[in-house]
C-alpha cells in the first residue's frame, strides 16, 4: 500500500489497543507536527500511557497486547514487519515516570546508549556525555563527579540524567510519561524549563496528571477518557473553551 506523504511528524490512524480481551484504546486518530509539545491528560486508567508507549513499541512486552490500526512516524509505519524496533527506539527516546538511572556511574548512564551501538571511543563518548548533560542542564552540577554513582543524585537530578541519557542517542522524538510526578516543585519547574528548550529540536509527547503542567508546557493537548480521545486541539482552547462537556468537567476538577 502506498503510504501518503505529509508534513506530520507523527500520525495514528484508527488505533485500537487490546490487552487480551480488554479494549484499552478505541479508534484514536491524531496528527502531531514536528518540534511541538503535545500533552495527554486524563484520569488514571484512561489509556494515555498505553497510547504514549505505542510510539516506541514498549507495549510489545506486555502479554496479551494486540493493536488494530496504524502508527506512522516520519511517514513510516512503525508496526510494519520490516521495522527494526531497536532503530525505532534510537529515534524515539523515552523518559519514565520514576527516574530510573542504571546502577552505574553518571558517565556510564549517558554513554550506555552509544556503547550498545558499538561506539566505545573515549573521545567520542566524552564529547557526547558532555553535550547531552549540557542539553539536559545537568552538566554544571555533575561535571566534577562523572564517576560517582547515578543513584546518589537527587530525584530531580536523576530525572534530568535520564533525559540526558535519552538525548545521547540523538532521537527526534521524546516521549515523557509523567516525568515530573515523582519530583518536588523546584525540580519540576526545572524539567518544564528544559522541555521548553528541547522543543526547538525535538518533537515531545508528554503524559501528565498535572493539568497546570499541561497548560504550561504544551501547544496541543489531548484529553483521554475511558480509552477514547475525547478532544484534541490547541492547549489554550482546550483549557479555556473546551468543546466537550467531559473535558470541561475534568479540567474544572469535577472528576478525575
Amino acid at each position: 500500500m502506498e503510504e501518503k506523504k505529509n508534513k506530520y511528524k507523527i500520525e495514528t490512524r484508527n488505533i485500537s489497543v487490546y490487552y487480551d480481551h480488554k479494549k484499552v484504546l478505541t479508534n484514536v486518530s491524531i496528527q502531531i507536527e514536528p518540534n511541538s509539545v503535545t500533552a495527554f491528560i486524563g484520569p488514571s486508567g484512561c489509556g494515555k500511557s498505553t497510547f504514549l508507549r505505542l510510539f516506541n513499541r514498549m507495549n510489545d512486552y506486555i502479554e496479551g497486547f494486540r493493536k488494530e490500526g496504524d502508527v506512522f512516524i516520519d511517514n513510516k509505519n512503525i508496526y510494519n514487519k520490516r521495522t527494526n524496533v531497536e532503530e525505532l527506539r534510537k529515534a524515539v527516546g523515552m523518559v519514565f515516570q520514576k527516574p530510573n538511572p542504571f546502577p552505574k556511574s553518571i558517565y556510564e548512564n549517558v554513554a550506555y546508549g552509544l556503547r550498545i551501538q558499538g561506539i566505545n571511543k573515549k573521545n567520542t563518548l566524552d564529547e557526547v556525555v558532555e553535550k547531552s548533560l549540557k542539553k539536559a542542564v545537568l552538566w554544571d552540577e555533575v561535571k566534577d563527579d562523572l564517576k560517582n554513582p547515578a543513584l546518589a543524585l537527587s530525584g530531580g537530578q536523576q530525572q534530568r540524567l535520564c533525559i540526558a541519557r535519552a538525548l545521547a542517542v540523538e532521537p527526534s522524538v521524546i516521549l515523557m510519561d509523567e516525568p515530573a510526578s515523582a519530583l518536588d516543585p523546584i525540580s519540576t519547574s526545572k524539567i518544564e524549563d528544559l522541555i521548553h528548550e528541547l522543543k526547538k529540536k525535538y518533537t515531545i509527547l508528554i503524559v501528565t496528571h498535572n493539568m497546570h503542567q499541561a497548560g504550561r508546557v504544551s501547544e496541543n493537548t489531548g484529553f483521554f477518557y475511558l480509552g477514547e480521545l475525547v478532544e484534541f486541539g490547541n492547549t489554550k482552547q482546550i483549557f479555556t473553551n473546551p468543546a466537550n462537556e467531559k473535558t470541561e468537567n475534568y479540567i474544572t476538577g469535577r472528576f478525575g
Binding site: 514498549m58 525505532l88 527506539r89 519514565f96 530510573n100 550498545i116 535520564c162 541519557r165 535519552a166
Partner: peptide, 27 residues
Amino acid sequence: VPKTIKEASFALGATKWQTIWSQILPA
C-alpha cells in the same frame, strides 16, 4: 532486578541480549 532498569535499556535501543548482558546480569 527492577523492571524499570530493563525498560530503560530497551527504550535506548538495546537488544534483549545487550540488556541481559550489560544490565540484568551485572545487577
